[in-house]
Design a protein around this nucleic acid. Structure first.
Lengths: 213, 213
DNA sequence: TGTACATCAGTGAACGCGCGTTCACTGATGTAC
DNA sequence: TGTACATCAGTGAACGCGCGTTCACTGATGTAC
């Protein structure tokens, strides 16, 4: 158990070429990594700042310098999650230019991310425990929707364009469908995780067939 | 603030024709009502058994006789939520026999319930804090999906039939779409509650048009 | 190149808090005779 | 119909716990001269 935090701490030092000592090196990144492990094990509901600090091998007050409070740390985890999700969507996007295939590919990627990173996915949407007004959070979450919207519109993704005043209902439908499916799966509607994953694998095609956009 | 709990307590007594006294009358129902108020104000994350007890005007140990622990009380709230949702879906179902209209009507009812009872809706799906194996929870949640599935299949709802081994992908698509839309709205993607509600009102038709089942 | 000093990042002990849970208890209820 | 008694539902004081946060501090870093 303590190996984990030591590992996080030392890997981190090695990566940054810092000797062990009073200063950590990159505590910010280490805390995000530690928090992600905590979330994976205990879920968002069981998260505490103290445990994350303990796990990063640091005193309970240390995180304050970097994140202020638990909300700040969770927001950072959520932001990182949206970045990863955005990358997954972008990767899927790069595989084809066919509009329908782009949409389906992103749908698959969305679900793969959600089922593969349930703790992060939960955190990303737990708006009561994160600061949804934080600029980098907003930016990274907007990018994810922007990518999906571009695929639906059949145009390349342009990072600079923010959400238009009125979202395209077809994009909202796509997003809702995959998001809802992910949530139902994570909430156990299709059985325990492994069963759900198999069920989704079989169902995703036919389910997405119902969407005509 | 204390008026609330007194109100709950006294209304409850009046309803059951019990005098004030050592025994409550129907503490079980009063605790569920008090818990729902707590959830509405503080959200699931801020919920505590003690506060619910306080609010019901009862000592901290009293809930144990009825619910065991916080998990038990939240499960009861969730169960009641699924019953209400099921009723809303059944009411919508009673308005028409046209298949497409049944599906759309249930979709509207689902979203109206979610946006109108956000705290209960959150609780219903917060599987880490409720006992999803509890029989009455399972029954009431299955009923909700059963109603939707019957509409998609174009047949009347039969309470006795449990979920089949393999769910109909079209029903899963419908459920995912409305569930995802509800979650995105509740999580603030479409703006603050009142704005989101208006946005959903305008979007729901076009969004559901994308679903061909 | 060397030194002084401000700034930054982390320590660790301490605090007060609300929580869930336990405990011995007591008042009310309802049933058996 | 009246009484005894078991059972049930609630009390309220107490407990130990982990939490977030504060505090005076100290070790390391980097910059100005």
């Amino acid at each position: 158990m303590n190996e984990d935090l030591d590992t996080v701490k030392k890997q981190d030092r090695r990566r940054h070429g810092k000797p062990d000592g009073y200063h950590h090196g990159d505590l910010r990144a280490a805390l995000i990594a530690a928090a992600t492990l905590c979330l994976r094990e205990r879920g968002v509901d069981g998260f505490s700042l103290r445990e994350a600090a303990r796990r990063a091998g640091v005193s309970p007050a240390a995180p304050q310098h970097h994140f202020g409070d638990a909300r700040g740390l969770l927001t950072a985890v959520a932001t990182q999650g949206f970045r990863k999700l955005g990358n997954a969507l972008a990767d899927a996007d790069a595989e084809t230019v066919d509009r329908t295939e782009r949409i389906r590919g992103q749908g698959r990627a969305y679900l793969r991310f959600a089922l593969g990173h349930p703790a992060e996915f939960d955190t990303m949407w737990r708006c009561a425990r994160i600061d949804t007004a934080e600029p980098s959070y907003k930016e990274s979450s907007r990018r994810a929707f922007g990518l999906l919207e571009a695929a639906v519109a059949g145009r390349p993704y342009e990072p600079q364009s923010p959400l238009p005043g009125e979202a395209d209902p077809r994009a909202v439908a796509c997003w809702s469908l995959v998001h809802g499916l992910a949530r139902l799966a994570l909430d156990g509607v299709f059985g325990p995780p492994d069963v759900a994953e198999a069920a989704i694998d079989g169902m995703l095609g036919p389910v997405m067939d119902c969407l005509v956009v």
